[in-house]
């Protein structure tokens, strides 16, 4: 059986908020390394991978591998009943029909108990090899979100170019064009506010802004975001948490 306790409900609430607009139904795979998820969006253009590691739980017990088939819209309805500071306990049998969720406030005088019906989800998994990326950019997640939002008002696509000069986001649309260039600017006192660029080789790729704006809903998970790019492979956007991560992979747009 599974029994997993999070000190703060906000962790799972933020993860679900981050991915619910990209995927609807997905398996939460529970095993002795924690709770993992991998799912593609309906159009098979983007992929999300999430890992909440056992170290992030106040209590974690999972005797055998359990797949929890969850509709994220339904899960979000139940999670709305949890206050951010509530302790959350997830429980499921070995072949569960339902996931039990218990929310307890810090004063220990309120216990909320919910059951979420589970589904059988036959999900395709992709093997993603360890990749040496041509360019890796670490920057404030809020700034990345702002750039994606601003450019999405002008165009459907953004060209991302990483060179030794910096990383340039540019787009062209019906009303005009726009570009934002970030230069390497490490902040010694507050590393989460700095921008670092590791460049092995110049990279130039084009991506759909609709997806990037969607990924930015994970900005609440981390002050920083890591963007990894290589020519002709999907972009990797990673939000790292204290004990886990949410990663998004996005296929580039290609010239015919």
């Amino acid at each position: 059986m599974l029994e997993a306790r999070l000190e703060q409900s906000s962790v799972l609430k933020k993860v679900v908020d981050a991915i619910k607009d990209l995927v609807q139904d997905c398996n939460f795979d529970c095993n002795d390394s924690g709770i993992q998820l991998q799912a593609m969006d309906n159009s098979h253009v983007a992929l999300v991978a999430m890992h909440l590691k056992t170290e992030g739980f106040a209590l974690y017990r999972c005797d055998r591998n359990i797949a929890l088939g969850i509709n994220l819209v339904s899960l979000q309805k139940v999670l709305r009943a949890a206050q951010n500071e509530d302790v959350m306990t997830l429980k499921a049998e070995d072949s569960p029909d339902a996931l039990s969720l218990v929310f307890e406030n810090s004063e220990n005088d309120r216990i909320s108990e919910y059951d979420l019906k589970l589904m059988d989800i036959d999900q395709e998994h992709l093997g993603i090899p360890e990749t040496e990326y041509g360019a890796t950019v670490k920057m404030p997640s809020a700034e990345f979100q702002r750039i994606c939002r601003d450019l999405s008002l002008l165009s459907e696509s953004v060209a991302i170019e990483a060179t030794k000069e910096g990383i340039k986001f540019s787009c062209t649309g019906d009303i005009g064009k726009g570009a934002v260039t970030l230069r390497q600017n490490p902040n010694v006192e507050k590393p989460e506010l700095g921008t670092t660029i590791e460049l092995q080789e110049p990279v130039a790729l084009t991506f759909s802004l609709k997806y990037l704006v969607n990924f930015c809903k994970a900005s609440g998970l981390s002050n920083t975001v890591t963007i990894s790019l290589s020519n002709e492979v999907p972009l990797l956007i990673e939000y790292e948490m204290e004990h886990g991560y949410v990663r998004f992979y996005l296929a580039p747009k290609i010239g015919d």
Binding site: A46, H125, L126, S157, P234, A251, G255
Partner: peptide
Amino acid sequence: KISQAKIKAYYTAI
């Protein structure tokens, strides 16, 4: 013309 590639084209199904 630019077209959208699929993520499945890059990674192997397991």
